[in-house]
Write a protein that binds this DNA or RNA. Structure first.
Lengths: 172, 172
DNA sequence: GCCCAACGACTGCCTCAGCAACTATAGCCA
DNA sequence: TGGCTATAGTTGCTGAGGCAGTCGTTGGGC
């Protein structure tokens, strides 16, 4: 058994994937307590951080891991649950906005502190500041290489969006 | 707009997720050319690195991101495609092994070099050795915290499994 | 002003994966 | 030995999400 699988490259990827999976599981568990899925939380977050707490469906898709049809359905569910509303775009009758409702904002407010706590507890708090900086620096460089445009649904746009990077994609 | 979303913790997670998504997309694209999905590749890999190129269904589930029912179905598909076979376990008639066929090994051989090249190109090769070491070290520490048991399907076992960590889970 | 290609959202159909229920076997204990 | 519980694998049902096709709208070229 000539173990090709001990290759450090494989190990590196495995590490990355395990961290991702581990954190995702923690997030999912906490969000679940608040009645949110990971995607719903992401949608809520991206809308809440946009001007007017709203985004066109397409822009929302570009900012998430979803296709436009995927967005249609999440928004369906979240509208049904009262977290979001659709609003017609006055200047382009093809477009519509997804807007966070008061209930949606409240849900997000209830969820965020716990979410941050979990990140702190399982990720950022695990390393001393300088090790964390090194980790993030490495990640950033890799990210700049693979680029975020690889996200499904977006054609080629979205030049810089670090899940929390503000570029105000709303153009009504 | 008091931007809670610029919080460095959120940014850190965003970075991690973007890297994961970016790499995953590259992997998926390359594997797709070889007619494999990401899970199929993972299954193939885990089997190929196990003694006898085989693993019991349950152990396979524990080593992947799948539940046991998920494993049943992937193995169904891969068996249909001739990459795998089921073999009865002689000592426990409830169990069965998933075994990589010659065709499966060949497919893996055709796929691995390209896969490694992609890792090199978009991940490990993006950083000088010492930055990479720092990145991996950070990841390892976080991984040790979130622990791999968080992977769906495994109850609590799998003490150390770095996607490439050999602990030979086959116990026939 | 008219036409046509491009675009935004939505829907039908499909695949994938999880949970829970079910079957068959194993191993324990009286 | 006979029963009882735990375990391995499979299957029915369900929800999520992607692709491709549809419909209405837009905007540029003429």
């Amino acid at each position: 058994m000539t173990n090709v699988f001990d290759d450090p490259r494989i190990t590196a990827v495995g590490l990355l994937y395990e961290v991702h999976a581990g954190l995702s599981a923690r997030f999912a568990a906490q969000l679940d307590e608040q009645g949110l899925s990971v995607v719903e939380f992401e949608v809520l977050t991206r809308l809440a951080r946009s001007p007017g707490n709203q985004l066109r469906m397409t822009d929302l898709a570009a900012q998430t891991s979803l296709s436009t049809s995927g967005v249609t359905r999440v928004v369906d569910r979240m509208e049904r649950d009262g977290l979001l509303t659709r609003r017609a775009c006055p200047s382009d009758r093809r477009s519509s906005f997804a807007v966070v409702t008061a209930a949606g904002m409240q849900r997000l407010d209830e969820t965020l502190p716990g979410h941050l706590r979990i990140i702190e507890q399982w990720f950022t708090g695990q390393l001393d500041p300088e090790a964390l900086a090194a980790l993030l620096d490495g990640l950033r460089r890799v990210r700049d290489a693979v680029h975020p445009y690889a996200t499904a649904g977006s054609t080629d746009a979205a030049p810089e969006q670090e899940i929390a990077a503000a570029d105000g994609a709303g153009r009504p």
